[in-house]
Design a protein around this nucleic acid. Structure first.
Lengths: 210, 210
DNA sequence: TGCAAATACTTAAAACCTTTAAGTGAGGCG
DNA sequence: CGCCTCACTTAAAGGTTTTAAGTATTTGCA
């Protein structure tokens, strides 16, 4: 009975890799156990349950994505920052579709609120560490998006509105593109993407008054 | 052995209702059978399999959404059309979260390509009718979005790029909002939504040259 | 060094799920 | 009236998650 050396981290990474191969929603505890040459029940020593595992993969993806986006942002400002950030985002989604799907995991609202409310408080003690990690990675994304907008001199509440619009457009585009929605028309998705970023830049420079 | 009167349509509607209640990915053939007071195996007389059922729900949602969007669009042009269309979209997603999730179902690319290539051809005969319905409903959405842009006098390929940007922004916003992403900040999601639509209108009126 | 405690893994089992195949009964139609 | 179709049931195989209890290995400490 040689030990397989399973840990929560290795499990999460294996799940992420598997998700990129066969699709996030096809990843099962059983398949993962097979990959480690171990019985399914063994995994429950490292991970609370299947949902916990999924959330960990989501957290991993959000963290990796934030790291790449952060690198892309380094030393850039204005439109260059926007474009580099957006491309990091899109490239990641195309290279790691399973991870990207995991990052979009809809945590149930109450859990998110609890984790957001007061980190380290009694209320958030009930929240699993995986959820906290995912939520804090999501916050990093929001902060980076806000950092990009510093180049556009928007003040509150316009800045928040603009952060939401930029996030929406980037996420929406990548999401629709990977869903194959842009394959109905011959226009290359790369070109539309470039023009969409041009348009975002334009509207950020000329943000309409309320 | 009284007949329960199950049909594919009733099944689809029940699945959609259940999805709105308990979440799309929690809908099972078994739960659905229980709702009809019938054994799970009975449903396979009306529906190919679970995936077929999911695609039907997606098609139903896309169709309902297209109907509402179409009504919202009637008699409007320019920004009024954009706003009415966008609100129809967002309202639907908030009122029917399970259906909306079903509409986002990622059909696998090859299937979509087959259904898109040549409707009614030998190639698409292999595609299930549910897939065809979903794909054609998706096309209706694209056509309506294009209709909105007629008010902005964009010519190809700008029009296609703009269609993609608008779709992305609307879908992305609704998707992030329902995922609870906008709850981290006190700014009301309704207000950011209105400003996002203002911004979309602005950029469509001043679409940047290539 | 050697023993005890912690822990990685197995076996076993319950409770779900999907799906196919074969059988039964009821309703519609000639 | 009898037959056929078709909605539904029963039966069964095979997959999944998850808990509980047992076994063996590694760790850590005296």
């Amino acid at each position: 009975m040689a030990r397989a050396g399973v840990t929560a981290e290795r499990l999460t990474r294996a799940a992420a890799d598997l998700a990129d191969e066969i699709g996030f929603h096809n990843v099962t505890v059983s398949a993962l156990a097979r990959g480690f040459g171990v019985k399914p029940a063994a995994l429950y020593a490292h991970v609370q349950d299947a949902q916990d595992l999924r959330i960990r993969v989501g957290g991993l993806a959000l963290t990796e994505l934030a790291d790449r986006a952060g690198e892309a942002l380094a030393g850039r400002a204005g439109k260059a920052a926007l474009v580099a950030f957006a491309n990091a985002y899109r490239d990641y989604a195309r290279q790691f579709p399973g991870r990207y799907a995991a990052a979009q995991l809809q945590l149930d609202p109450e859990t998110v609120t609890a984790a957001t409310a007061s980190p380290g408080s009694a209320a958030s003690a009930a929240v699993s560490p995986a959820v906290s990690a995912a939520v804090s990675a999501a916050r990093r994304h929001a902060e980076m998006t806000r950092a990009i907008l510093r180049g556009y001199e928007l003040s509150e509440p316009d800045q928040t509105d603009a952060v939401r619009m930029v996030s929406s457009t980037l996420h929406g585009y990548v999401s629709l593109e990977t869903a194959g929605q842009f394959r109905h028309h011959p226009r290359q998705a790369d070109l539309s993407w470039a023009r969409t970023l041009d348009a975002l830049d334009t509207v950020l420079r000329h943000w309409p008054p309320a």
